[in-house]
């Protein structure tokens, strides 16, 4: 069984997206053997009122039984925008959202902003995960209208050290850290935080150049299949798992990566 913990529908305003509706994503899933996808609406990154994007996603999923069978929706919440607490409650209780994606850089707040901490705590109290992205696109080819966290400049792309402060601030929440990019040497305390927190990475990110080394470094319980579709290609995240040799990951470990770790994070087992 294969669960993709990092997929989207919706639009990226700077580049045409393919496979960015539930229908088109489901076609990809069927073609490439993916059972379930955790999805959010990309539009939520760009709408000031993110709840409009959550409503769009909810309506699209409700439009066909085959969608509700195969997609697990996450809400996009901006904790510095009016009404976010109500939006969170509506998303979880009425729309059935099973987690929350948070975009500090795009929504322009610090990752340990009190509002962000409150949001993470509220999601934690629902027993649901929060998801943060290292980045959405490669900044080297970003649009001139995109955010200006740029590789090679003093305002660089994020690495894990930039995300860990929220994990430290709310250590008992559940975290999905997605699209792994940019190497960082962690201190022993930081590594301990990663290992002890209820936290998983997905397999979509560019920095995972040697999957077996990452499994050794963080542990086999810290990764789950992800695509970052429709922005990234649909198979690289899967290839990182399936090309592992038996000496690097036996079938039990591969099942953890394909779906086991995701099920635990999503409360599906």
């Amino acid at each position: 069984m294969l669960i993709d913990i990092n997929a989207y529908v919706g639009n990226w305003p700077f580049q045409q997206m393919k496979y960015n509706t539930c229908e088109l994503l489901l076609d990809r899933m069927n073609k490439f053997g993916v059972d379930i996808s955790v999805i959010s609406n990309l539009n939520g990154i760009f709408y000031k009122n993110t709840q409009s994007a959550n409503e769009e996603l909810h309506q699209e999923i409700r439009s066909a039984r085959k969608f509700s069978d195969r997609f697990i929706p996450f809400a996009v919440i901006n904790p510095i925008y009016a009404g976010w607490r109500d939006d969170l409650e509506t998303s979880v209780k009425k729309m059935g959202m099973r987690g929350v994606r948070i975009y500090p850089k795009y929504h322009d707040f610090g990752i340990t902003d009190p509002a962000c901490i409150e949001l993470v705590k509220r999601v934690r109290d629902y027993g649901l995960p929060v998801a943060f992205e290292y980045r959405m696109v490669d900044s080297r080819q970003r649009s001139w209208m995109d955010i200006d966290y740029v590789v090679g400049t003093t305002k660089r792309e994020w690495n894990l050290k930039d995300i860990l402060p929220i994990v430290k601030a709310v250590p008992d929440a559940k975290y999905m850290i997605l699209n792994y990019a940019n190497a960082a040497v962690l201190t022993p305390d930081e590594m301990n935080l990663v290992k002890t927190a209820d936290l998983i990475f997905d397999t979509s990110g560019r920095t995972i150049t040697n999957m077996s080394e990452f499994l050794k470094l963080y542990g086999t319980n810290k990764f789950a299949f992800g695509t970052h579709s429709p922005i990234l290609d649909y198979l690289t995240g899967q290839l990182r798992i399936e090309s592992l040799q038996p000496s690097e990951a036996d079938e039990r470990v591969k099942e953890q990566l394909r779906s086991g770790n995701a099920k635990k994070m999503l409360g599906l087992s």
């Binding site: 999923i61 069978d69 729309m95 099973r98 599906l268």
Partner: peptide, 22 residues
């Protein structure tokens, strides 16, 4: 949708997802 997701959980609990496409 929330009800459907609950149903999915029941399905997983009963091993119904085990067949999967994979």
């Amino acid at each position: 949708l929330a009800t459907q997701l609950k149903a999915e959980s029941v399905g997983i609990k009963n091993g119904i997802f085990s067949g999967g496409v994979y």
